[in-house]
Simulated assay, not measured.
Amino acid sequence: MSMYEFEVMTIDGEIKTLEAYKGSVLLIVNTATKCGFTPQLTGLQKLHESYHDQGFAVLGFPCGQFMNQELDHNEEIKQVCQLNHGVTFPLFSKIEVIGDQAHPLFAYLTNEARGVLGSKAIKWNFTKFLVNRQGEVVQRFAPTDKPEDIEKEIKKLL
Rank of each mutant, 00 (worst) to 15 (best):
K16T: 12
N74Q: 02
G36W: 07
L83D: 13
P143I: 02
Y4F: 15
L26M: 10
E96F: 09
G36Q: 03
G135T: 06
E19M: 11
N68A: 14
T17L: 14
G115L: 05
T127K: 05
D53E: 15
V138C: 13
G115P: 08
V8T: 06
A32T: 06
K94W: 01
I28Y: 00
L83A: 13
E70Q: 12
E75K: 12
A107W: 06
P143E: 02
G36Y: 02
V58T: 03
K155M: 12
E7I: 02
E136R: 12
L83E: 12
I95Y: 09
E76F: 05
E5F: 11
A102G: 10
K146P: 11
I11A: 08
A142Q: 14
I28Q: 01
T10D: 10
G60F: 02
F129G: 03
K34C: 08
G23P: 01
E19C: 07
E136A: 13
V131C: 06
F37S: 08
R140K: 15
L27R: 04
T88Y: 07
G60E: 01
H52G: 09
A121F: 12
N30D: 10
Q69N: 02
M1A: 14
L47R: 05
L47T: 02
L130K: 07
L105K: 00
F56M: 08
L157G: 08
